[in-house]
Design a protein around this nucleic acid. Structure first.
Lengths: 348, 348
DNA sequence: CTCCCATTTTTACGCGAGTAAAGTTTTGCG
DNA sequence: CGCAAAACTTTACTCGCGTAAAAATGGGAG
């Protein structure tokens, strides 16, 4: 039942007696050949096993039709949501996406950059590691192809680099305002990893607290942490605090939902949430991002939503502009940030 | 500060006066050239911007050094864990992995297959969609390159297809046995999507219940569901049930942890878990997989662990055997399943 | 049945590098 | 210092297909 395997267009050509150039045109655009020969080719194609060689086809075109995507870490539903949306958009635009994960490692991120360069990608969408990124690698990528950053900015943002992300100032203002209005002012639980988001959110927190006349405060964390196990980090940190009786009646604003998930677990372990109590709970926990599982926590997490699909789509549109219309690379940088929306649930 | 861009080896060759064939050898294995010329090349390389064209390099080699990976869905931490481990192993083995997500759609899965074929990948690791997969596409891939399935088997498993996964019979036996020993026998909550795992787990459940002399039962679900939103599916189903007072004192064994996460939320919404009660809780919920966030649920989810990294590594080893030693493709199929371990936490 | 335009076929070259063969230079050793 | 082996340079062909130009073919309008 296996169809005879044909490896090259040349073979196909002689096998079905259609010239190779015509086949070439057919595979680039079936509409570009007369309908009679088209059906001739297509019926033949059903009887044999052939796919044009991807590498050979791309080598001679001006554009490769490839878009590189680099994300810092795979096991994070926020990044996979981004990826998912980017891939869908790319498929719609008839581009092939080459996904590379940095696995939280700057060396691998640099390696991913090299790979994209060697593949002559038409453009790239990068969610950088952040502080640990290799600036030279980023710069190199940016110098050689249109590049838009998503989620966070690299430490040393190349000139004229495009960016799409969330408006951290707005999102933090929203949640801080809400928390202050409905209870004690929040203490802030930082992200262990430093990237522009962590900095921006901290800054926004400070600014907003000041504006509202509250004393800002950060959850005490010993030593520099450098792990992508956000839930574990927050859980252990707060478990320790709660054991010592600290923060047990606080309002904790977590820099992202994954931290909040760990925090909620610690709180529940210490029975700090009282579902049956009439009065407002003593402890409140809020997050940031609206992680897909946040609504399934107990209590469901109050947070602000970061719209991953919107960010992904905007990034693709922006990249397409640079790639296609060839918005001059030296033109001014584009930037687009999305506002977040409050997701009021029960945790705060 | 930008280095002069060099596009081809030819240019590089004349620019640094080292012949092209020598450069070719250098890029394939720096050790294969005399150390003096190596340093000559390397110092030159620091002054200019050049990467060998990926496509051109692969075109003439017998092996492309590519490994294709197809996973059904990106927003699922189990699959991303698999991917993560596969990529790490591939990097170690000096292979480039091309990741393709089916996005839960058979047409996209087939498209991914075409892409891998067109790229002449040396091998592929595929976590199939399952029942909705296009058998022809799978067959086509299997016919053209070494292929090992992970996680679940395709409906129509090609002959001599390799497989790596979890021993569902063993894992289900483990959890059913435990549940029966410590309380009421479990009812089973099926996966909405049909793949070999769902079938095997159901069958294992039936078998084990029978062996232990209990009456098997399934959580009633109206109509065929076909969504990847497992948590939402389980949440809404059980929320409805709990509202009607059904299953409120049952022991529910979920076909996977994502379902369990939704189930736990529904249970908590109805105050079905009583953290303060002395006696054993009336409602018990157990899962399967040991999803990264299971331990952070409230109550923490009792489940059986599926070792994604182990599965991924085994799959890579198996594939490497086929690819490298060229374990004859027509030889007997290899199969490896991993045993699961009980993760006793508080939900059951 | 013409004539013309649209398609297709022929022919030939190019992309960027792998690779083989022959000739030349360098290196290591005695 | 002489020599063989190792490494390099030259030359030329290959991979699978894009693409351009010229010649040949086909189909439809008149």
């Amino acid at each position: 039942m296996r169809k005879p395997k044909i490896n090259t267009m040349e073979e196909l050509s002689s096998a079905i007696s259609v010239s190779r150039p015509t086949l070439s045109r057919y595979f680039q655009d079936p509409e570009s050949v007369r309908s009679s020969t088209r059906t001739k080719i297509e019926t033949a194609l059903q009887r044999v096993d052939y796919v044009p060689n991807f590498f050979a086809t791309r080598m001679n075109r001006k554009a490769t039709g490839l878009i590189g995507v680099i994300i810092p870490y795979l096991n994070d539903l926020f990044y996979t949501s981004l990826l998912e949306a980017i891939e869908r958009a790319a498929i719609a635009a008839d581009y092939t996406v080459i996904t590379q994960s940095s696995h939280g490692d700057a060396a691998l991120e640099a390696r991913a950059v090299e790979k994209l360069l060697s593949m002559n990608a038409d453009g790239a969408i990068v969610a950088p590691l952040g502080a640990s990124s290799d600036p030279a690698a980023i710069e190199r990528l940016s110098a050689n192809l249109p590049l838009v950053f998503v989620d966070s900015r690299p430490i040393s943002m190349p000139d004229n680099a495009d960016f799409v992300g969330t408006d951290n100032r707005q999102s933090i203002r929203l949640i801080v305002e809400y928390l202050c209005r409905t209870g004690p002012a929040p203490v802030f639980l930082r992200m262990p990893r430093l990237n522009s988001n962590s900095q921006e959110r901290e800054a926004a927190y400070l600014r907003e607290m000041e504006r509202l006349g509250h004393e800002p405060a950060f959850v005490e964390a010993g030593g520099q942490q450098d792990s992508w196990d956000f839930e574990g980090f927050a859980y252990e940190l707060l478990d320790r605090h709660f054991s010592h009786g600290t923060y047990t009646k606080a309002t904790i604003l977590c820099a992202n939902d994954r931290l909040a998930i760990g925090a909620i677990r610690a709180a529940n372990r210490h029975r700090l949430f009282r579902p049956d109590a009439r009065e407002a709970p003593a402890l409140r926990i809020a997050g940031h991002d609206d992680h897909p599982l946040s609504r399934y926590m107990t209590p469901p997490l109050t947070t602000v939503s970061q719209d991953a699909p919107a960010i992904a789509n905007a990034a693709m549109r922006m990249l397409m502009q640079r790639v296609r219309a060839d918005a001059p690379r030296d033109a001014s940088a584009m930037e687009q940030t999305f506002e977040a929306a409050l997701r009021l649930r029960d945790s705060a």
